[in-house]
Amino acid sequence: MPTSITSATAIARERATARAANPAPDPDPAALPAGPGSQATTDSLGELEAGLDNLQDAPAASRPAAGRILLPLGTLAALLSLWQLAAWFGSPRTDLFPGPLEVLGTAGALAADGRLAEAVATSLQRGVLGFALALAIGTPLGLLLSASTTLRRGLGPLVSGLQVLPSVAWVPAAIIWFGLTDATVFFVVLMGATPSIANGFLSGVDMVPPQYRRLGTVLGASRTQQLLRIVLPAALPGYLAGLKQGWAFSWRSLMAAEIIAVGGSIGFGLGSLLQQGRDLSQMAVVVAAILAILAVGIAVELLVFTPLERRLLHRRGLAPGAGR
């Protein structure tokens, strides 16, 4: 092994001689501000660092909040105006192509006789309950798959495949198994949302930077601590994205199930309202139901997921405009 030890003492000795010849050398202006040790230098070091910290601390850019609200609202108003104009001047058959004012009137009537509120309440309740069930099954499933390579190799492709399968495909089977009951609706919602949630969890765990696990090992974390304190918090953004998608799949599956499975002990949901409009050839009811389904979807997104996501990402400096 080629190991050579070169000593720097020779240089140092030379320097010492030079110092002896000139006992008070001029302080070198390039030298760093004195050696360590005394309280004074420690204080000045802290001051220096504080100065540098403040210089590097860029003020956070303020975001115009008005644009976030006004822009989509303005777009909506413009689209509605176009729609109304098209209905007035473009179509002779308002029974086939109702304008927004007519749909609004129909929605008012549906609200007045209580059908709209009942449909929204029924669907929302089922959607939330079904989603909660999917959450309770999908999360542990994702955890299991992420913990065991064998399980993941075996079940992973199946779970991914189920995510691609349209959940409407489960409706006939569910009707045969459960009849026209709420169980049919919940089953379809469950099959629609669970794979998304499990997959979201998995991809969240997959995207945890390896550095964090190394850090956990270095800090002496046990397996459980590694999972609870490092991996799960790090996987949270991916998991939340999975939940968002899971909710979208729940809501879609629910509507599909409600449109197909009508009657029996199944309550009256938004899908049922839509189907009723079709049966009675009431286009305004159909459009009102579509808009209500859309509105509920947007409301859940805006009131639940967007604030959650914004908060989560903002805290980690990942949201656009969150600072450095």
């Binding site: 092994m1 030890i5 140092a12 030379e14 070198d28 030298a31 050696g35």
Partner: peptide
């Protein structure tokens, strides 16, 4: 990677810019 060379740095060298 093997150790190709090794230097000891005496304390006074660390405070002496020329050295």
């Amino acid at each position: 990677g093997r150790i190709a060379a090794e230097w000891k740095i005496p304390g006074h060298v660390r405070t002496d810019p020329a050295a």
